[in-house]
Design a binder for these strands. Structure first.
Lengths: 212, 212, 212, 212
DNA sequence: TATGAATGAGACTTCATTCAT
DNA sequence: AATGAATGAAGTCTCATTCAT
């Protein structure tokens, strides 16, 4: 009954943050609005003052994650040192290590209960990632290290190949089967798609391996 | 109130088929069990005789689709004539043209409301497709037309690249933006991933273009 | 957003009047505060400057109606010409013809949605009416036209009998059933309660009939 | 989460009974549906399976009370021994002593928070009571103890007079003011309305006084 | 097997009221 | 005084699932 009044954005962020935590812990469908508001300490009506629906909250959450992530991606792509290879590597590295609650975001998203989040996030992040990769590929073309005909499409292709391989990877882990080191495979495929000389990328990777 | 008794499998198929139609039209979440049973003309309880849950029905539906699809895929991969390229092409073609209710299944699956179906289907079909592609790649390697280091991973990579590009394509279509012909891009990328000589695949495709 | 400042009582009356109109049209419960303020053209907060609660507004409204009505009742009871019968008749007449929005207030109050208003109004008006009647009855006793043992109680009894008969009347009208002319019945009962000679009151009424 | 299945009418009565208890304790408006279901031990959805709305529940409750009460009233009116006076007396007595939770129902209903219940109950019980009284009055007319011109209207009038006097009485009690013994007044008024000889009814009452 | 009313979970809506500006 | 976004209370609806018959 005691009323706590907070600034719009503060309270909103509070709700979104709590939802993020709970969605990742229990999954979107398995997290009742009831649970969120209880955790935040607000009433039903308050929730629906800020969000049209539970689904709308997911949108906002995705939006917030996107904002946070895409900003970094772009910055890394544009500001990090080195040639195109190095920059793509840095972006990938950032993305792969992106974590929530001590676990990699990408691992989280591959869990079945997070389809909703995964799907929406992917839909929004993909164009940004693809844009970055595309520009870097063009740079690489100019630098003479890459030889790519369709930069944007190749960017999308690389992301698709890498993601599917990661997903397969997750499946394998779930089934406790591990085949080839998928990172080697991804590198091999990138090399091919980027039109690099064979072994060039692997060589580069070995240099930076320690940094991870 | 009149009670219709049917053979178990007949009735089950009837439910699954109706569900398929409704899920694709309205989406999984937006199709109440109520709607399905009303359409089929059975009672609530009857539904739960056949399926443990609505989710279970989705599983069965996916299973049924899988059975139908993977059988064909394997057959096409193994029995169709020609070299590895031709066979991969045939499999892809079959998959791409797979339709429901006068529309391509793949188009359907990319609609937002079908995340559930998409996710589960992909998870099950991918290994089968990848297996086929993988074997064909090995054949191609042996035939000397391909030069692939990690056949299975490359198979997954090709599927990922192709799917992401299709999805991007769908998004573009939704936004009424059309860029490069993605089919050309996909072919270019496959050529590279399969380690073929540049232009070799495109050349081949042109020959068979009319058949589609 | 433009801010209109008005004198306290003017604004207050404006709100009460609007509320009266809306309460009678939609009923107390079915009239959101939102509706009232929208109609008046003020903000939520402003409403709560003038009234502690929606319920408080109802009180004020009742108070205002009471003030308006009881003043007239007392005046008619005390100042109107003629003997006790005539005066009671005049008071009743005034009350019965009291109208809101072209309809009799008493008719309005008998509608289901106006329980709140009815109840509170009755509770406040009854003592005033009973007081008037009671004094008039005593006068009549002195004048020798009435012969009443418990003036105040008889006053209340007359009001009760008359009201219940009117309510029954309303119900009958709703069900499109009309039985005996209730006015004749009310007059008969008053005659008895007031200890008049049979037919005396009816006779009197006939004289003044035209005035109504 | 454990499910308790009960027969429709059993469960329904359970809800209505609980509601009756709570409504009378806290008042209709001050009893949330939440409270009712918590007390009964059922879920929201279950409640709305049985009742279209909280208001609908009130209707059912009234219906149930009516059924219970009107049956008795009619029986007493028709089966109890003695002449018309005695019977009317018995009905009144039954009604006046009708209790809920150790308190007289009529006292309960006069509490402000029970307007809803009061209003609806009165609306439904009145016709029944009036019907009984009306028939008894006709009997009394025939027996020569009464001399009533409009039996039904007089019945309604008696009920109105008696109720208003009781209400006034309640108000007085609340304000700790006690005036004339209202029972004497009511008897006096009934005597007059029923066209009895003065003092006849009081005399009769004195005989039966002890029985109460 | 078939039925559908009964049940529980939870999304969503409406609305009175408060409070920082 | 005036404003209206913010808040909490509570009503209602939709839907998956269970169970007695």
């Amino acid at each position: 009954m005691p009323r706590t009044v907070k600034e719009h954005d503060v309270r909103k962020k509070e709700i979104v943050d709590t939802a993020e935590r709970l969605f990742l812990e229990y999954g979107y469908e398995e997290t009742p609005v009831e649970m969120i508001i209880h955790e935040v300490g607000i009433a039903k009506g308050t929730f629906y003052h800020y969000f049209r629906s539970k689904d709308d909250l997911l949108d906002e959450l995705v939006e917030q994650l996107i904002e946070e992530v895409t900003g970094n991606i772009k910055r890394i792509a544009e500001e990090s040192e080195g040639n195109a290879i190095e920059r793509i590597f840095n972006v990938s590295l950032y993305f792969r290590n992106l974590g929530v609650r001590k676990q990699r975001l990408t691992d989280y998203l591959h869990e079945d209960r997070n389809v909703h989040l995964h799907h929406r996030l992917e839909k929004k992040v993909l164009p940004v990632m693809a844009g970055c990769y595309s520009r870097l590929i063009e740079t690489g073309n100019e630098e003479g290290i890459f030889n790519v005909k369709y930069p944007y499409e190749t960017a999308v292709g690389i992301l698709g190949a890498a993601n599917y391989l990661s997903e397969e990877h997750h499946e394998d882990l779930t089934r406790h089967v591990v085949k080839v080191d998928i990172y080697l495979a991804i590198i091999d495929l990138m090399e091919r798609m980027l039109g690099m000389k064979e072994g060039k990328l692997i060589e580069f990777m070995k240099h930076t391996e320690g940094r991870e």
